[in-house]
């Protein structure tokens, strides 16, 4: 399938999903679906750098929170409309990805991973000390009274935005995967030295993939303050974003854009169910155990099983 066809199909599906969801009377559905979609974006974004390029990002929460807090800033400073927030947060997180990548991607991959881990702690410290966006106390973000497109509640608008952003993230991921860039990234993942020798512009490609990945993670965070209506640093920087965005692609499979989606839908839904029926601490434990179990026992994830099964049938 051509990328343009795929894009048209993805956005058509997104619009259809949004239209169909209008028939669902239950508000909880929108809230739960919002969370799952948010994880699909995070997992897809992580996979662009982690799965395609082979560089581990432990700082998903930092990029996510960059998007969220740029929205808070715009809300406090200008009362900017949602679209402006989404675009600004995406750009800000992309710039952050570029900066961190520029500083650490020239060295061994491990240093990038460690730097992203520490980045989350530092940005957290920064936000806690920044009173304008609420500091450690957090900030209230009041959802606008007037809701566009005749939607009944604000969560419907956030949900619709999330569906469209998910479609965008998938289109970008698939486009990267199938293009020359994607092949360059795969070459880096498999053997960076060989790729460099073969003339692949490794640093430029790595920076590109770090930027896109960071930007998409930030995009997932931009609507988060409105979703919660109250934001505090420990919610925006929660380690669960980091662990989920790693666990989902690893469980689903990292070689194609489908893997993270499968992982996110599966793990995201399980967490929603566990959160309602047991408790949120337990659902984090489940994610951790699944991550370790898959990475040791089924390193290629669910898509790895599918591929193996297909090969056997042939």
């Amino acid at each position: 399938m051509k990328n343009r066809t795929f894009a048209a199909l993805a956005f058509a599906t997104a619009v259809a999903v949004i239209a169909a969801s209008r028939l669902i009377p239950n508000d909880y559905f929108f809230s739960a679906a919002y969370t799952v979609l948010q994880f699909i974006i995070l997992a897809t974004a992580w996979n662009i750098l982690g799965g395609y390029t082979g560089y581990v990002n432990f700082g998903s929460a930092a990029f996510f929170a960059t998007g969220a807090y740029s929205s808070v800033f715009l809300y406090k400073a200008l009362h900017a409309p949602l679209v402006v927030m989404i675009v600004t947060g995406t750009l800000a997180a992309g710039l952050l990805g570029l900066a961190v990548g520029y500083l650490t991607l020239r060295m061994r991959g491990v240093f990038f991973a460690i730097a992203t881990l520490a980045l989350a702690v530092v940005l957290y410290t920064f936000v806690v000390n920044w009173d304008y966006v609420g500091g450690a106390r957090g900030a209230y973000i009041i959802q606008p009274r007037v809701i566009p497109f005749g939607l009944p509640r604000y969560i419907h608008l956030l949900y619709s935005a999330m569906v469209l952003m998910t479609a965008l993230a998938l289109v970008i991921a698939r486009a990267i995967e199938t293009s020359t860039i994607g092949r360059g990234l795969a070459a880096i993942r498999d053997d960076e030295l060989a790729a460099e020798c073969a003339g692949v512009p490794t640093l430029r490609l790595k920076l590109f993939s770090a930027t896109v990945s960071g930007a998409l993670m930030g995009m997932a965070g931009t609507t988060f303050p409105y979703y919660l209506a109250y934001i505090e640093p420990s919610a925006a920087f929660s380690l669960s974003y980091a662990v989920n965005s790693i666990a989902m692609p690893l469980i689903g499979g990292m070689m194609s854009w489908v893997g993270p989606v499968i992982g996110a839908v599966l793990l995201g839904s399980v967490q929603q169910i566990v959160q309602v029926t047991i408790s949120s601490a337990w659902n984090l434990l489940i994610v951790g155990v699944l991550l370790v179990a898959f990475v040791t026992l089924a390193p290629n994830g669910i898509m790895g099983w599918v591929d193996a099964w297909r090969r056997k049938r042939r």
Binding site: G50, V56, G109, A242, V243, W282, L285, G288, V292
Partner: peptide, 29 residues
């Protein structure tokens, strides 16, 4: 699981991250 298969760079890191996370959540519980 990792070093012998030459997968330590990505999956090995994820493995230790998972261990870190499990220990923390278990202690919280």
């Amino acid at each position: 699981c990792f070093e012998r298969r030459g997968q330590e760079s990505l999956r090995g890191l994820a493995f230790f991250f998972g261990i870190l996370f499990i220990t923390e959540v278990a202690l919280v519980l």
